[in-house]
Design a protein around this nucleic acid. Structure first.
Length: 804
RNA sequence: GCCGAUGUGGCGGAACUGGCAGACGCACAUGACUCAAAAUCAUGCGGGAAACCAUGUGGGUUCGAGUCCCACCAUCGGCACCA
C-alpha cells in the first residue's frame, strides 16, 4: 500500500508554519548550536537537486541537534546582488529588484516543499535596503580605520562584463562571472587592505576546525614566503633596484636582473634607455596579452635588454645587465628579480635564449662543475661565493647572507605574500553603492551615517557601459549631491560593491535580523557566537571564506563582534551529477528538477535518497531508480503500522538491533555519514519486517531515528502511534543502553594460514582453551595429519592456525 | 612542476584502532500472486566446475593487509614563470 505523500507533506508543513515550530530565540538556559549553510543566489532557474542535498544534510543536523536538546539556529536568506540576478534581469527586461523578488518566491516555495526546519522569521535578502544600509556602514568603518582606499591600480578587467574584478574573482585569468579571459587595466578603484591581514588569516586557521583541504587552499592562496629583500645600486643614479628573493645564498651567481614591463623605473629613467622604442613596443605587447597568455609556462621566454641601465651586485661589486620580461610580475614582490640562471629554471631558460653568462654557485653532488645542462636547484656545497664558500646547507648559507646584508644595510629578511588587497569596486548597476562622495574641496567624504542607506536609484538601463564606467554614472540626479562637509557641489561614487560584500557578514545578521541600529544586538552576538557548522562548496574556499574571515577579524578588532574567527567547522559537500556522470546542464539534457521529484515521489523520499546516495563529501551521479528504492522503503515504514501489537516495551528479539541502530544512527549523523545512517535504518526495518508483529515502542523508535531524514511521514505516523501527544519535531532523541548493544554469542572466524575456513559460535569473552578445543573438534578433518606450528587467538576476533 | 585526495562487483557505495571484503540500495535472474502486466512478496546474485582467485599495478612487513611501508600507473581537485 502506498501513502499519499502530497497530502501528508502539505499537512505537516502547514502545521510547522502555524506553530512556528522552528522559531528560535536567545535562551541562556540552553546550549546553542548554529547550523549555517551558504545562502543561495536566487537565480531564475530555481533550485537544483544539488541544493536539496546540502539543505537536507543541514536540516538533518538542525533537527538532530534540536532533538538532542540544543537551541538550534538554522536560518536562510538570499544573496541576491551580483551577476546572476542582473543577467536574468537584463535578459528578461525587468528591473533586477523585481526579478529578485520573483526568484526568491520560487526558491522559498521549493525549500518549503522540502520541509526544512528553518526559522523563516529570520529571512532577509542582501538587497534589502535595511540590510545593505549596514553593509555600507561597515564599509565606512573600513574607510575610517584606514583600510579602504582609492587608488589607481592595475586590475583584472573582464571585457565581457565590462567590470573590474578582484584577484579572487579572476583566478587563472578567467572571469568568475562569465568565464571570459581577463585583461589588465589601469583603473581608479576602491580597495580594502586585506594584505595587511595575511598573517592573521593564516594564524586564525588554528582556531578553526576546517577541513584540511579548505585550510590548504587558503594557505596556498595567501602564499606566505620568507626570504630577503636586496638592494642593487643602479649605476650612476641615487636609486636602488630592490628585489625579493627566497635564495639570497645564491647572490654571487646573479648574472642579470629582470624588471616587469610595468616597473616604474622604466618611466623614470626613459631618458637613459637607448633602445626606448624597443622597450616601449615590448611594454605595449605585454599590456595587450591576456592573463592566460602571459602566464602560459609552455611559451618561450621573451624580453628586451635595457641599454644604458646597469646594476651593481652588492656582494661583489660586479656590473649586471638589466632586462625587462613578462615572466616577472609587477604584482608580486617588488616587480623585479635578481636572476641566478645556474639555479633557477626560468632564469636558466632566459639566459640560454639570450646568451647571458651562467655562474654556478652551488656544486651539484657527483658531477664536475662545468656540466650544467639545466638549472640545479638542490642542496650542495657553495662555490664561487666568497665568504659562503664551503657551506653545504642552504639554511646556513641563507642565514649568513642575511646577517651580511643587514650589517651592510643593503638588504634584510623579508616576508612576501601572494595575497593582495581586495579590489572592491565594480562598474555594475546591481550592487551596493559605495557610500562615498567626492568633493573638489574636501576630497573623499564618507556619506554620514544618518544618510544611509545610499539607495540604488530607479533607472531605465542597467546594462554595463562601453567606457568602463558604472551605469550609475549617467544618472545625474543621483550623482550630483552637496558635500556633507562643506556644502559645495560634489559627486557620488558610482561604483558598486562586489557581490561578496553582502555575504561577508550575513551570518551575523541572522542572529538578530530586525535590529534597526546595529549589525545585531550584543546579547545575540554573544549568545550565538561562532557558527558551529558551516556547509558550503569548495569553490568558495579562496573567495567567500577568505573575505568573510577578513571582514570578521576586522569587526572583531573594532569591538563589534565577540570572536575573531566566525566559523568553527567548515565542511564541503560533493556535487550531484547527471545520470551520465557529468555535471548537470541544460545543454547536456541531464538536469533533474527537484520539484518534479517532490511531486512524483514526495519530499521525504527525495531527502532520504539524497542522504543515501553516497559519501556526503563526494560527487554522486543521479539515479532515479535509487530514489524509487527509497520511496519503497518509506512505503514499507508506512505499512509497518499493520503489524502493531499491544505489547509494552521493545520486542525482545528486536531489543539488541534497536539499541545498536540508535547508537549507529546517532554516531553517523554526528560524523556526517548520512549514507550509512540510512543504511542502518534499512537494516532495522528489514529485521522488523521479519517479525510477525511489533510493539508501539519498536515503531516509535524507528520513526524517531528516521525523523531528521523524512520528517513528514514520521510526523504523521507519530501522531497516530507515538508515545506522546507532542509533535515529533519537539521530541527528545532516543537513548540506548550500551549493554544491550553487545552480543553474548559471537560467530568467530577460523583461519588456517590466514585463509578463512569457517566460523564457530562461542560465548563472548570465553577463555581461550574453550575456543581452542572447539576449533580442534570442529575442524578436526582439516587439521588431520597437519603439523601445527602456531595458533593465534585474538579475543572475540579471530582464531588462526599456522600449519606447515 | 609542487601540494592534496581518490582508485573495491554490472552500478551507487559499506568495512571501527590490521582480524569473515562486498553491509545497504539499485540493476538483473528465478519463483509466488495475476487472464496478463505493473505493484508487492520470496529466493539468488564478485569470478571459477573445483582447489582456489579477487579491493588500480608491482614489491615488502605480518600468523593475517582494502587498511601499514616502498615504487609505479590512472583519475580528480588546489596552486603555479610567485622569484
Amino acid at each position: 500500500m502506498e501513502y499519499n505523500h502530497s497530502e501528508i507533506e502539505k499537512k505537516w508543513q502547514k502545521k510547522w508554519e502555524q506553530e512556528k515550530s522552528f522559531k528560535v530565540e536567545v535562551d541562556k538556559n540552553k546550549e546553542k548550536f548554529y547550523m549555517l549553510v551558504e545562502f543561495p543566489y536566487p537565480s531564475g532557474v530555481g533550485l537544483h537537486v544539488g541544493h536539496v542535498r546540502v539543505y537536507t544534510a543541514s536540516d538533518v543536523q538542525a533537527r538532530f541537534k534540536k532533538a538532542k536538546g540544543y537551541n538550534v539556529l538554522f536560518p536562510m536568506g538570499w544573496d541576491a546582488f551580483g551577476a546572476p540576478a542582473e543577467q536574468y534581469a537584463i535578459k528578461n527586461h525587468i528591473h533586477p529588484k523585481k526579478a529578485v523578488e520573483e526568484n526568491i518566491q520560487v526558491f522559498k516555495g521549493q525549500m518549503q516543499d522540502l520541509g526544512l526546519a528553518i526559522d523563516w522569521d529570520r529571512e532577509f535578502s542582501t538587497t534589502d535596503p535595511e540590510y545593505y544600509k549596514l553593509t555600507q556602514w561597515q564599509f565606512l568603518q573600513f574607510y575610517k580605520a584606514g583600510l579602504a582606499y582609492k587608488a589607481e591600480k592595475e586590475i583584472n578587467w573582464c571585457p565581457t562584463c565590462k567590470t573590474g574584478l578582484s584577484n579572487e574573482d579572476a583566478q587563472g585569468g578567467v572571469c568568475e562571472r562569465c568565464g571570459s579571459q581577463t585583461t589588465k587595466k589601469l583603473k581608479n578603484q576602491w580597495v580594502l587592505r586585506m594584505s595587511n591581514y595575511a598573517d592573521k588569516l593564516l594564524d586564525g586557521l588554528d582556531d578553526t576546525e576546517f577541513l584540511d583541504k579548505v585550510k590548504t587552499a587558503q594557505i596556498n592562496w595567501i602564499g606566505k614566503s620568507i626570504g630577503a629583500s636586496v638592494k642593487f645600486k643602479l649605476k650612476d643614479t641615487d636609486d636602488d633596484l630592490e628585489v625579493f628573493t627566497t635564495r639570497c645564498d645564491t647572490l654571487f651567481g646573479v648574472t642579470f636582473m629582470v624588471m616587469s614591463p610595468e616597473h616604474k623605473f622604466l618611466e623614470k629613467y626613459k631618458d637613459r634607455i637607448k633602445n626606448l622604442e624597443e622597450v616601449k613596443a615590448y611594454q605595449e605587447e605585454a599590456k595587450h596579452k591576456s592573463e592566460i597568455e602571459r602566464t602560459d609556462m609552455t611559451k618561450d621566454k621573451t624580453g628586451v635588454k635595457l641599454n644604458g641601465l646597469t646594476a651593481i651586485n652588492p656582494v661583489n661589486g660586479e656590473e649586471i645587465e638589466i632586462w625587462i620580461s613578462d615572466y616577472v610580475l609587477a604584482s608580486y614582490g617588488t616587480g623585479a628579480i635578481m636572476a641566478v640562471p645556474a639555479h633557477d629554471d626560468r632564469d636558466f631558460a632566459f639566459a640560454t635564449k639570450f646568451g647571458i653568462p651562467i655562474v654556478q654557485v652551488i656544486k651539484e653532488p657527483n658531477t664536475s662543475e662545468d656540466t650544467l645542462s639545466c638549472a640545479y636547484t638542490g642542496d650542495g656545497i657553495m662555490i664561487n661565493s666568497g665568504f659562503l664558500n664551503g657551506i653545504d646547507k642552504k639554511e646556513i648559507a641563507i642565514d649568513k647572507m642575511i646577517t651580511f646584508l643587514e650589517e651592510k644595510n643593503i638588504g634584510k629578511k623579508t616576508v612576501n605574500y601572494r595575497l593582495q588587497d581586495w579590489i572592491f569596486s565594480r562598474q555594475r548597476f546591481w550592487g551596493e553603492p559605495i557610500p562615498m562622495i567626492h568633493c573638489p574641496e574636501c576630497g573623499w567624504v564618507p556619506v554620514p551615517d544618518k544618510d544611509l542607506p545610499v539607495l540604488l536609484p530607479d533607472v531605465q538601463s542597467y546594462e554595463p557601459t562601453e567606457d568602463g564606467e558604472s551605469p550609475l554614472a549617467n544618472i545625474t540626479d543621483w550623482v550630483n549631491v552637496k558635500c556633507p562637509c562643506c556644502g559645495h557641489d560634489a559627486k557620488r561614487e558610482t561604483d558598486t560593491m562586489p557581490n561578496w560584500a553582502g555575504s561577508s557578514w550575513y551570518w551575523l545578521r541572522y542572529m538578530d535580523p530586525h535590529n534597526n541600529n546595529a549589525i545585531a544586538s550584543k546579547e545575540a552576538l554573544d549568545y550565538w557566537g561562532k557558527v558551529d557548522l558551516y556547509d558550503g562548496g569548495m569553490e568558495h574556499a579562496t573567495r567567500h571564506l577568505l573575505y568573510a574571515r577578513f571582514w570578521n577579524i576586522f569587526l572583531h578588532e573594532q569591538g563589534l563582534v565577540p570572536n575573531s574567527e566566525p566559523f568553527l567547522k567548515r565542511i564541503s559537500h560533493g556535487m550531484i551529477l547527471g545520470s551520465n556522470g557529468e555535471k548537470m546542464s541544460k545543454s547536456k539534457g541531464n538536469v533533474v528538477n527537484p520539484t518534479d521529484m517532490v511531486k512524483e515521489y514526495g519530499a521525504d523520499a527525495l531527502r532520504l535518497y539524497e542522504m543515501f546516495i553516497g559519501d556526503y563529501s563526494k560527487d554522486a551521479a543521479w539515479n532515479e531508480n535509487g530514489l524509487k528504492g527509497c520511496r519503497k522503503f518509506l512505503n514499507r515504514i508506512w505499512n509497518l503500522q499493520s503489524k502493531l501489537n499491544a505489547n509494552a516495551g521493545y520486542t525482545p528479539s528486536l531489543e539488541s538491533i534497536i539499541n545498536k541502530t540508535i547508537k549507529k544512527v546517532t554516531h553517523d549523523i554526528e560524523t556526517l555519514d548520512y549514507n550509512t545512517a540510512v543504511s542502518a535504518l534499512m537494516i532495522l526495518l528489514n529485521e522488523m519486517d521479519k517479525e510477525t508483529s511489533i510493539t508501539k515502542s519498536d515503531y516509535a523508535t524507528i520513526l524517531q531515528l528516521l525523523n531528521p531524514f523524512a520528517p513528514h511521514i514520521t510526523e504523521e505516523l507519530w501522531s497516530k502511534y507515538g508515545n506522546t501527544n507532542k509533535l515529533l519535531a519537539y521530541e527528545a532523541w532516543p537513548t540506548y543502553d550500551e549493554t544491550k548493544t553487545i552480543d553474548e554469542t559471537i560467530e568467530l572466524p577460523v583461519q588456517v594460514n590466514g585463509k578463512l575456513k569457517g566460523t564457530i559460535l562461542i560465548p563472548l569473552n570465553v577463555e581461550e582453551t574453550y575456543v581452542k578445543d572447539t576449533v580442534h573438534t570442529q575442524f578436526a578433518d582439516l587439521l588431520n595429519g597437519k603439523n601445527i606450528a602456531k595458533e593465534i587467538y585474538v579475543k572475540n576476533k579471530i582464531f588462526n592456525i599456522v600449519v606447515k
